[in-house]
Amino acid sequence: MKIFFLIRSLGLGGAERQLVLLSKGLHDRGHEVVVATFYSGDGGPLERELLQAGVRIRPLHKQGRWDVVAFLLRLIRVVREERPDIVHSYLPDPNLMGVVLKPLFPTIRIVWGVRTSIMDLSRYDWLDRLSFKLNCWLSRFADAIIVNSHGGREDHITSDYPAEKMVVIHNGIDTERFRPDHEARRSTRLGWNVKDHERLIGIVARLDPMKDHPTLLAAAASLVRKRNNVRFICVGDGPAHYRASLQDLAKTLGLTEHVIWEGAREDVSSVYCAFDLLVSSSSFGEGFSNVIGEAMACGVPCVVTNVGDSAWVVGDQGEVVPPKNPVALMQAIEKLLNQNRYDPAEIRQRVVDQLSVSSLVTNTEQVLNALIQGSMPRTVGWTRARPT
């Protein structure tokens, strides 16, 4: 089977890391895998990982938002050269491009990858809103839609996505890469000048409205008034103006000395190991949070908002609070700091048992094989019902 993945770029994001894991896993099982990117890369870590595994990358050299016609012609030419059995796109814009290919290549199966739950589109520009509407309308033309969360599937069905074409396959977590590491914890905390007696609470997320850093900052402001041994760190990149607005908010809340601002890191496993507690404060849009699963694989307890499948990911090994509720968030953080009843080994074991990379690859392989054979599978490792 030849699979042609399509994604905007191979930057350091959750969807991008999952695509790399899946591509490598399918390649290792003897399938031919090609990854096409809208934008030319800079030889970053995910590109290097694919190339070292023997997976080819085809950059499409998109020149910007309005480079549409020439870009589409390049995409058609590359697909004609590659002649895949499956085009598997990730995220909204690549999904739209995948459907455009369908009438030109009727024998190729088009598979969409949906990575979010319902979005608050009022927080984004008109082009994002148009893209969402087009995705809803054109989703019926995909041969299958793989969603990484049950919450995302249910939310998209309410937006007229075809329920009969949607299957849920949770993300996989590389538990060999993400594991407890006491030396990494020591050295990373030292680099941030965090003392041994200080409790470090971290968020690893791009700077984007859906991640709701303001709610975390409000919770942090309440907590530092009660405890003098807590520090917070925000790890991730985003638009300069949004970063500046968050830093201004932190200053207004009196958090300047309590919050560390760190850009995206390649050594994210070491970052998790440095934390005493991870927070996922997303208020909308989260499907399956890689960050939660990765931190848990490192034995780090998590406080998460009940968005997407985050509550299912932590299960009985973490705390769940409503979104946009800084009081509840602060109380859950304080509860874990005062009396952490979660065993790091048990936190990690939940990820090992439930979220293996092998399951991700096997379940995806079954869906893709069934499509090539002309049907949707009825008994594979995914289910149409939300798990409990």
Score class of each variant (00 low, 15 high):
E198F: 05
Q18G: 01
S280N: 15
E286G: 04
L207M: 12
D67W: 09
I57S: 10
K24I: 13
S117E: 12
E257P: 01
H258A: 14
I233V: 15
D67G: 09
V68N: 10
E154Q: 15
R341Y: 15
S270G: 13
E49D: 13
A218E: 15
L223R: 02
L371I: 03
S375E: 13
D237S: 10
G64E: 10
H31A: 08
V79H: 00
G299R: 03
P94Q: 00
I110D: 08
H156T: 07
I7S: 01
Y124D: 07
A295Y: 03
L121A: 07
T362Q: 14
R348S: 09
V351F: 00
V303W: 06
D212H: 08
L91S: 02
Q354M: 12
D85G: 09
H150V: 08
R65P: 12
V307S: 04
I108E: 02
L72T: 15
L216D: 06
R243K: 14
H61R: 12
R231T: 12
R29W: 09
G263S: 12
L60G: 07
E334N: 08
L96I: 11
M97V: 12
F275G: 02
L255G: 01
C273V: 00
T175V: 03
G98R: 03
K226I: 07
L50I: 05
G202L: 09
V69R: 15
G191V: 02
V168H: 04
L336P: 05
I145L: 12
V194E: 10
P322R: 04
E334W: 06
R83T: 11
L200S: 06
S23E: 01
D42F: 06
T256P: 01
D276R: 08
R206L: 10
V307N: 05
V167M: 12
K324H: 13
P180M: 00
C234T: 14
S40P: 11
I233A: 15
V327N: 08
D276L: 06
M97L: 12
E49C: 05
R386V: 10
P162W: 02
A345G: 09
D276Q: 08
H258Y: 15
K324L: 13
M296A: 02
A385F: 08
T383C: 04
A36R: 06
N228R: 11
G202V: 09
A70D: 13
G263C: 09
L355A: 06
E294Q: 02
N95F: 02
E32Y: 03
F288A: 03
V78Y: 02
D125C: 05
